[in-house]
Simulated assay, not measured.
Amino acid sequence: MRVDIYDKDFNVIDLEQYNVYTTNFTLGSPSPSHERQETSGQHGTVTLGSKLGARPMSVSFHINAVDAYDFPLVRNEVFKVLNGLEFVYLVDKREPGKRWKVKVESSYEVQAVALVFAQFDIDFTSDSPFAESIGTTQDPLTFDAEVWQIGQGLLSEDDIVYTRTTDSFRIYNAGDVTIDPRFIHTPLTIEVTTAATATSATLTLTNTTTGDVWTYTGSATAGQVIQLKNVECLKGGASVALNTNFGLIKLKPGYNSFTKSSNISQISVITRFYYK
């Protein structure tokens, strides 16, 4: 099956114009590692924690050059694009709503057969163990948006929106991975817009599903946006973390129930979804 390749800015890399085609995509399983400890006087071990490592994958390529003189030119185009110095994105056309951010893992040989043909495999590694959705919460959650696919956890319910104004609401994480802003591979931005009463009371946002609470006690004006960007808290681009409880908000897979204080007029959640 075809694999589409994109550059680090997610612009398509068209190798087919050089008669280079992808023919197969092989994805390695999640790679767990476990921290274990022996306990004196007891059999076996105790598992203290588990995590997933980088994700291996490979893509099969086929070259069909015009003639023997064209072959090295085509081969060099492959070397130029897939050299391992820059990140690229891979999209398996069987799963067109997900992408993998990868680098070429090792050297590979492109050996001509009958002067003009070649078949070869390239190994890639994703630092993240998770695929990420091409779409974000700023895209319509409909297949008409052409960034989603079946199997991404999308629902047809009308209340799946990511900008909220009521004091209690739900936010839906369509992925199967908890979005935790502490981790580089699951970034999350929440924009908190203050109401007219914000100058006189503490701002509070709570995910009652996870028990996470964020509070802000600094100065604010009506309509001001405070950004919870990963582990940072920003107002006008400057850190205001010292005016918070240093709380971070996570999103478990599925629905997350929230409450906000009435001096917050609106919250917007900006993220992708992540999949094992």
Rank of each mutant, 00 (worst) to 15 (best):
A145E: 12
G97P: 06
S261K: 04
E109N: 14
L155E: 03
F130D: 05
F124S: 08
A201C: 03
D127H: 09
V59E: 10
T125M: 11
Y255F: 15
G153Y: 02
N24P: 05
Q224N: 00
T166L: 10
P181S: 04
Q119M: 11
P32G: 00
T22I: 13
S133E: 04
T194S: 04
S106K: 15
C233I: 11
S33P: 01
Y275F: 15
L73E: 11
V269C: 03
E105K: 15
P30Q: 11
L48N: 06
S257M: 12
A54M: 09
I179P: 02
M57N: 12
T199C: 01
Q37P: 01
I226C: 00
E95V: 08
G237E: 01
E132M: 07
A112I: 05
V81N: 09
S239Q: 02
I190F: 00
E232S: 12
L85V: 09
L188I: 04
E105D: 15
P253T: 04
I184N: 04
P129W: 11
Q42D: 12
T26W: 02
V240N: 02
T193H: 01
V3H: 06
T23H: 09
K8N: 10
K252D: 04
K260G: 01
L155P: 03
V102M: 10
T199F: 06
I226S: 01
G153I: 04
A220F: 00
V113D: 09
P56M: 10
R55H: 08
E105C: 05
W214C: 13
V116H: 12
Q152E: 10
D167N: 14
P129T: 01
R94K: 15
S239Y: 01
T271E: 03
L188V: 04
P30K: 02
D176T: 12
V177H: 05
S168P: 03
S58D: 12
R75P: 04
Q266S: 13
Y108E: 13
S60P: 03
F143V: 07
N256T: 07
D123A: 14
E191R: 07
I190S: 02
T209S: 13
S128C: 06
T204A: 14
L115S: 14
Q266N: 09
G28V: 06
L234S: 02
L154H: 08
P187T: 03
P253I: 06
A222F: 00
T206Q: 14
D9P: 00
N243G: 00
D121K: 15
S219N: 04
V240Y: 02
T22Q: 08
F87T: 09
D144N: 09
K51D: 13
T166M: 06
N173V: 05
N76H: 07
H62K: 15
